[in-house]
Nucleic acid binder design. Sequence first.
DNA 1: TTATTTATGTCGCTT
DNA 2: AAGCGACGTAAATAA
Lengths: 231, 231
Amino acid sequence: MRLVVARCSAHYTGRLSAHLPLATRLIVVKADGSVLLHSDGGSYKPLNWMSPPCAMAVTAPDDAALERGVTQVWAVQHAKSDDRLEIELHEIHHDSAHDLGIDPGLVKDGVEAHLQAMLAAQIELVGSGHTLVRREYPTAIGPVDILARDASGAAVAIEIKRRGDIDGVEQLTRYLELLNRDPHLAPVRGVFAAQEIKPQARVLATDRGISCLVLDYDAMRGVDDVDSRLF
Amino acid sequence: MRLVVARCSAHYTGRLSAHLPLATRLIVVKADGSVLLHSDGGSYKPLNWMSPPCAMAVTAPDDAALERGVTQVWAVQHAKSDDRLEIELHEIHHDSAHDLGIDPGLVKDGVEAHLQAMLAAQIELVGSGHTLVRREYPTAIGPVDILARDASGAAVAIEIKRRGDIDGVEQLTRYLELLNRDPHLAPVRGVFAAQEIKPQARVLATDRGISCLVLDYDAMRGVDDVDSRLF
DNA sequence: TTATTTATGTCGCTT
DNA sequence: AAGCGACGTAAATAA
């Protein structure tokens, strides 16, 4: 990884054209050839970037560029598309290279799959006397997260989301419509379960007779702390 | 902006929980307090990050952490939410600070205004013999992007969008309805011009007798390369 | 302000 | 390889 802090301007052409006026910025050149151009603010998104695979060619500035004070021109060309980023460097304030090695990568926790596994193991959270039929119960338009039966034996379809918004309710509605055509299952009740349920989604669900269940991730994890075996 | 290259591990809790095992990474601390944790690959997205507003507290490692070889603990806390990123630093390979100043920001090109200016300058793209009447031709419900006359002298109203969808056709339809009430102009023909025209929009436009024109941004720019003077 | 749409989206998974 | 959906989506735009 190479880190350069320099006064520079840049021009990108690809899916759009964009220009970056002269200013001091951080340029990161990663081991895979990708380039990030960061300002000292904003979000984690660079002002300009090139995704791998791409290659950089360093060239000397032409006369007109020299006149403007350009000391180096970096032309970064994407290997497969015609995406192209050209950086004109003026004063370079910092330039260093570092060997980082490969990264073991991020381990995510608390994703939908995990919530589903925990809710399947603690299905009584949906209601006393509930029993699991199966996870990923198949339908013609895709699997329902969980199919269960309540204390009276009636089918219950459960859709799980980390964040429950309207889309999730629509999805569950489609499943319910299909499942209710199956005489072995009908009538199927719907439960929309999420760590957080948006007010709009709650209103829509309630209007359609779907009950909402807010999942407390930490509490569920506390009940079954050796959560890895759930998978 | 502070740049640190160090062997580190990290733990994020917020909308999800995530862990980053020990490895050498780039840590960027921006002037607004935001933090990026980059590996030497992947895309422009950091492995972990904290968006502003947030504040960092540097603390000494406790005994257990010392035992693991931790030399510093950085606790980055979001100002408004309970998002939190904790970084345990081991060996620090690089540490430097740079004053970048504020950034003028990215100038995106190829926007509707630019397309309009270029099409006005190259009005024959609409059809041979066409002449420009004026840009932003006023009507009671707002200005039409371009009003022109074809080779026979008949009025042509042009609506320009970067991406042409149904809304744009509806908009042009409303303009045409108004313009055709003007005896000096009627009959007014409609042209829907966009870099990309969605199939639905094309069907609707055709159905209403509006012709479609796909604009080739690069080709138009090539014809008039000193595009800045168009504004 | 909030809600909706866009994105050089990226990322991960399935067909 | 191509398509589809989720994302700590973020960012821009419209209402």
